[in-house]
Design a protein around this nucleic acid. Structure first.
Lengths: 195, 195
DNA sequence: ACGTTAACTGAACGCCTGTTCAGTATCAAA
DNA sequence: TTTGATACTGAACAGGCGTTCAGTTAACGT
């Protein structure tokens, strides 16, 4: 046996990333073997190396793609006029994006430590860029007198942690819908940054 | 070579748990080998099995101990009179406790997935018990008209996520002291649950 | 129909894994 | 000083790890 009928790199490539993402997120990077990923895709382990130079590069690819898409999606988002509208847009965007990609979000927070120094720095930089987006909104609101925040950097971290945490408990089809969750979180954030 | 001079189970036992905690927290449970832990302690890998039946039991022991101590510490905490004072006590306690045990906190949030079903359920139950402590405060405040919270369960998760996140960015000797951080977080929480 | 390229297999590489255990040195009590 | 109990070594076990590669088959342009 060698090449399989109907096999195409445009199918296998995405399949590998998809299965790797799911497996890494549920069991952890180190706990998942290349053979497990291959089995989930339906190929032998050796075939994975047509798509990635090594295991760490596969993880990096997943994280880099996620961060790029996150920043691109936020850049494309409507954010209204003024700090208050911008903050609301950010809160709703962050919750929506994170809920739709819980696996990738989890990975990007948990598995950075499995990256080499330069790959780590790259992802960390992108994360910081995203955090800066929120901090700029808070700073603008603070200067405009719309927000009352003792420390914008701390508030940035606090708000992001609070919002990101939604992925740990939210279940589709549960007591609360996504829209209701977003409404309630926005209510809490709005009050927290206010007078 | 066999027994080492000055060797005692009361020294080696804690040393193993201490090193395992640190290694698991920085590299992840699956990425750390028994030989690495043994080397950090200064013994051979086989010696670890005088102190734990297997690797997973070692992890479980660390998590169980941490959760027990967390609940015991909160139970022993002064919490003042009324929901507002209780909430403030909880916020300050949670930040203080988590900052003093960042490794264990990180582990208990990240490595639950490496536990078997019944061990997982045990730790999850303890965590839920801790979360319930906060939720009861929020419920009491809501009923007393002191807080204005659309959903106490969501608010519980939001506040815990926000507070726990402090361990990801706080560095001792940085721009802000622990006390300042606690003050600012309390300010945000107080406003978030208010009118 | 043919030849080339793309996709994959399956076996092998050396190394590391968690765990067990017979043997041995140290400690503490008598 | 002898005697157990305690603490540990070092080698071994079977199996899994990431990774490489010669060989094989399917797909596709001509």
């Amino acid at each position: 046996m060698a090449r399989k009928t109907g096999s195409h790199s445009q199918i296998t490539g995405p399949k590998i990333r998809e299965q790797a993402l799911q497996l890494f997120a549920s069991h952890g990077f180190a706990a998942v073997s290349m053979r497990q990923i291959a089995a989930a895709v339906g190929v032998q382990a050796g075939a994975l190396y047509l798509y990635t130079p090594d295991k760490e590069a596969l993880l990096f690819d997943l994280l880099k793609t996620h961060m790029d898409e996150l920043l691109a999606a936020w850049a494309a988002e409507e954010r209204g006029a003024g700090p208050m509208a911008a903050l609301e847009a950010f809160v709703r965007f962050h919750i929506g994006f994170n809920l739709s990609r819980a696996d990738a979000v989890f990975l990007s927070y948990m598995e950075l430590r499995n990256l080499g120094p330069e790959n780590f720095a790259m992802i960390e930089g992108l994360r910081r860029a995203y955090e800066t987006e929120l901090e700029e909104i808070l700073k603008a609101g603070q200067e405009a007198g719309v927000f009352l925040i003792p420390d914008t950097k701390l508030a940035t971290m606090a708000i992001i942690a609070m919002l990101t945490g939604v992925t740990t408990w939210f279940r589709e089809g549960g007591r609360l819908s996504r829209a209701m969750v977003a409404d309630i979180y926005w209510d809490m954030v709005r009050k927290a940054v206010g007078a």
